[in-house]
Design a protein around this nucleic acid. Structure first.
Lengths: 164, 164
DNA sequence: TTCACTGCAAAGTTTTTGCAAGGAG
DNA sequence: CTCCTTGCAAAAACTTTGCAGTGAA
């Protein structure tokens, strides 16, 4: 199955990364990687931490933070900070590059694919800079919040957003 | 002069925003807006706070945070969180949309303009989402860090980045 | 055997909140 | 005169750090 293939590719990549840097291949690091690969879509450090705990595999928060840093450096994970909420992470599978639609009102994040745009972005080169990847965030208002805003406009009590 | 025109346009926009939402037009809010418009490129809340203090215009941090939130909602300021450093802000002048090249090693941020890309992005429409603006972050390694990395590779002691 | 890694808890950083006083509308 | 906004300091939220013990190489 494809999911398993992705998992073992990630393992291999992480192993290579650690070998190259003479980092120790601890069971905690692999356990965290595995759990990350299980997470569908975005997650917080705290969710990852609890998910591991619920599996009966306890690691300290410090280790989670430390390992996530390595995974980011290895290119297996991306960090996003949408608006002012705590950092969110997402696994990088290689397949399916996408962008993020972020609602400025409620903070909800939706993914959109746009191969045309991805191709254009991939073709760009910059002087004195070796680009590795890009993140495109499109901010705006989702349809749900749009409804809410126009409703409250009529009641004349719309407030500045309290999320994001 | 152009700078003054931008400042008064920002004033007008902020006033309109506050009027519409029945928010109070306090001197603190205008002082913060003015200082923001003086900041060239990116700044931190802390820099803004000290800059005001150095001008002999003291406002509490709470007010700075509160006002920045309003300015973002009003579309006069953008918040960025590059890597894992504290949030950085930047004024929106309407002229000169740009993207950000972010070095994953040292955290340095450079602006690049690309009208072709901006036009393409502006033309995009999304179902059930009303886009207001976008942020494109291009992550990679700057030339300075690239030199440093290849040097340390030879010495066989390159470490995972400790910035970002 | 060595020293990078882990867990834990304490400390650090950044941001938010509660409350009394003040001032915009 | 009302009640939104401010300042301050305390608290919260998130992340990093110090240190002693553990285990990968």
């Amino acid at each position: 199955m494809n999911e398993e293939k992705i998992r073992s590719a990630a393992h291999a990549a992480f192993t290579g990364y650690m070998t190259q840097r003479r980092l120790r291949k601890t069971p905690e690091r692999y356990a965290i990687l595995d759990k990350v690969m299980e997470m569908n879509s975005h997650f917080f450090i705290e969710s990852l931490y609890s998910a591991l705990d619920e599996d009966g595999y306890h690691v300290s928060r410090a280790t989670v933070y430390n390992t996530i840093e390595l995974l980011i450096d290895a290119g297996l994970v991306r960090r996003h900070t949408f608006g002012n909420s705590p950092a969110q992470y997402e696994k990088v599978t290689g397949i399916g590059n996408h962008h993020h639609l972020v609602c400025s009102r409620c903070g909800k994040v939706r993914e959109v694919k746009d191969p045309e745009l991805v191709n254009l972005l991939n073709s760009k080169r910059y002087p004195s800079f070796h680009a590795a990847y890009f993140d495109l965030y499109i901010y705006g208002v989702c349809s749900g919040c749009l409804r809410r805003v126009s409703r409250s406009k009529k009641q004349n009590n719309n407030k500045p957003n309290d999320k994001i």
